[in-house]
């Protein structure tokens, strides 16, 4: 019984790490722009397919394909920000960029469909078949890579935001865009940088998810709604909170599957979300964001 709980806990942590990578991009962008990019899910999907292309068409190494996916994600982030968010910045209705990204999402998904077809792609790396057993527990090599890459990315991101000048400037822009601008920081460039980092993380997440998910052009949609929930549970714009919430949601999914029924996962996760919003809307780790309370 205890062993079972630990095993499911491990499963949950692996899944949670994937969610964290996807959700971090959303929360970073929200932090500086107070905007949601609905095409984020499709960055994940395109990252996954980029990795597929590198490994299966170019016969590159899987780890190389992770880098490729990140790069593709970064490029997409640059394009979407340049085309949609930057021009509409400060121009009133905060909903317009949101709907515009819905349009972009529809285009990306159906463009991918036209290009790649609807048949699910089987993405198998040599790591996903390799099972590592330690005592009664097991992890696939793929899971180990997921944990390692996610942890590295998180540590690097955290270090960047906390200790480098650029990172601190980013946090300043997130706190108060106008004042940051007055202090000689170029908010537009920093917003672009944030977008690029966030979207690169999404692409990377997609590449790690590719062997796990059913890989079709609509693969992003199953992840994105949970990512939204994670961002809220963790607190919009809050990095530590998002990480914690992501891991928590992964664990909840695994435990719900074990104890209840996989079909009830969404109810449990979103029930938790609504409960959080009623009880503690600022998120798991409260930050000073009064205007949304």
């Amino acid at each position: 019984m205890f062993v079972l709980a630990v095993q499911q806990g491990l499963n949950g942590l692996v899944l949670g790490s994937l969610y964290v990578l996807v959700a971090l991009g959303l929360t970073l962008v929200y932090g500086v722009l107070v905007q949601i990019n609905f095409a984020h899910a499709d960055f994940v999907m395109i990252g996954a397919f980029s990795a597929y292309f590198v490994t299966h068409a170019l016969h590159g190494d899987y780890l190389l394909s992770l880098a490729a996916a990140g790069a593709v994600g970064a490029l997409l982030g640059y394009l979407v920000n340049a085309a949609i968010f930057a021009p509409l910045l400060g121009k009133g209705s905060e909903l317009r960029p949101l709907i515009a990204t819905i349009g972009v999402s529809v285009m990306l998904e159906n463009g991918a469909l036209a290009l790649l077809g609807p048949v699910p792609y089987a993405f198998a790396t040599r790591y996903s078949a390799e099972v590592i057993r330690f005592g009664p527990l097991y992890l696939t090599a793929q899971s180990v890579i997921i944990l390692a890459v996610a942890a590295t990315a998180i540590v690097l991101l955290h270090g960047f935001l906390r200790f480098t000048f650029l990172g601190k400037a980013l946090r300043a822009v997130a706190q108060d865009r106008e004042t940051a601008g007055l202090m000689g920081i170029a908010p537009d460039r920093l917003i672009m940088l944030t977008f690029i980092i966030g979207s690169a993380l999404a692409g990377l997440g997609g590449a790690l998810l590719a062997p796990v998910l059913v890989l079709t052009p609509f693969a992003g949609t199953s992840v994105i709604v949970k990512a939204f929930a994670i961002v809220i549970i963790g607190g919009f714009g809050n990095i530590e909170g998002t990480i914690l919430a992501g891991l928590l949601v992964g664990l909840i999914e695994a435990m719900t599957t074990q104890v209840l029924d996989p079909g009830l996962i969404d109810i449990v996760v979103f029930g938790l979300l609504l409960a959080m919003l009623v009880i503690r809307p600022t998120g798991l780790i409260a930050e000073r964001r009064e205007e949304n309370v």
Binding site: V34, V225, F236, D266, E291
Partner: peptide, 21 residues
């Protein structure tokens, strides 16, 4: 107590729960 995007996601969460129910 919520405004802006919090309410948006809360309403989306409600939609997900309703659908699942």
């Amino acid at each position: 107590r919520l405004r802006g995007h919090y309410l948006a996601i809360a309403s989306l969460g409600f939609a997900v729960i309703t659908y699942q129910v």
